[in-house]
Simulated assay, not measured.
Amino acid sequence: MNIIKNVHILEKKIKELKKKKKVIGLVPTMGNLHHGHIKLISSAKKYVDIVIVSIFINPMQFNNLLDLKKYPKTFEQDCCILRKEKIEILFYPDIHEMYPIGLKNHTYIDVPKLSKIIEGKARPGHFVGVTTIVCKLFNLVQPNFSFFGEKDYQQLLIVKKLVKELNYPIKIISVPTIRLKNGLAFSSRNKNLSISEQKKAPFLYKTIKKTCNIIRQKKGKNIHKTIQESREYLRKKGFYIDIFNAYDPKTLDSICKPSKSIIVLASVWLGKTRLIDNKKITLKN
């Protein structure tokens, strides 16, 4: 595996691949790889000639310095996983390589509306950091395809919007969430859960599923009441709720009355660990 840390070396390698007319896929990550990332990689292999994985813990998308400092760093373990997956190129820059003049005066990319609501409202500046680094990676790697998990649903919509509106010739492929047997979505943050919290964490997705089933049974009626009951249930289980609501899957506008398509988005705290998840449903007439 070729580990590239320098932007100019990466640019040279991309030119070589383009000359050979290779179809390139990008899987952007912040490391601490798990089964969800492996699924992204295996999905990418179906579309492209060469998969490039990036590992960069992007400080611009953290609005909490403590959260940034405690983010798991498992580079050697990640390399073992990538070698096993037969990844040819790993882009692994440091902060000075990606932000040579620092963060404060760096140009940034902002996607209006979608970046300011729901998770964006709870974490100011988070999505500006995401979209800025994604655009930098797109400019450097020039992929034909890029792959994102559906667990970060709002992020997925934002990336699709910026690709369309900034005219990137890139196809965004969404990959379904990978879960443990108990339903908990794989996440780099799961390692921060205590033993007792690990037992509680699966209740998040179980509650989301139950909420969706009730909404489906009631054909979208009394959504507000259903959501409130689910919120109260999670609180009793020990979750602190930032976000738990029903939205339009295309616009992320809140839904208060019956709608054909609905997504329940959740962002909660369990102890000091933030967990996000979602489930989308289609109501029959």
Score class of each variant (00 low, 15 high):
H224E: 02
E11H: 15
L162W: 09
K161P: 01
K181T: 14
Y205W: 13
R231L: 09
V111M: 14
I227W: 01
H106R: 12
I170V: 10
Y233A: 14
H8M: 14
I117R: 04
N139K: 14
K39S: 11
F62D: 01
L270T: 03
V51T: 09
V159L: 09
R123Y: 02
G149K: 03
S146N: 04
I52E: 00
K19P: 01
L252V: 10
Y153V: 04
K250N: 15
G31P: 05
I9C: 08
K260G: 00
I4C: 02
Y47P: 06
E229H: 03
V27L: 04
I223R: 04
S259M: 09
N278H: 08
V23K: 12
K20T: 13
T74A: 06
N167A: 11
H224P: 03
P176W: 05
F56K: 06
N63L: 00
D67F: 13
L26I: 09
R274Q: 07
N6W: 10
A44H: 07
V268N: 00
V130E: 02
T131S: 10
K191V: 12
I133N: 05
L270F: 10
Q217P: 00
P258W: 13
F91Y: 01
P143Q: 01
N32G: 13
Y47K: 14
N213Q: 11
R235S: 11
L82G: 10
F148I: 05
N182V: 10
T226D: 06
K12E: 10
A122D: 14
R189Q: 05
L82P: 12
K18Q: 01
T131N: 13
I276V: 13
T131A: 11
T207R: 09
Y168M: 02
V111L: 13
V141P: 09
S54K: 07
C135A: 14
K104D: 15
V128F: 07
K69Q: 10
A266D: 06
G125W: 00
S187I: 00
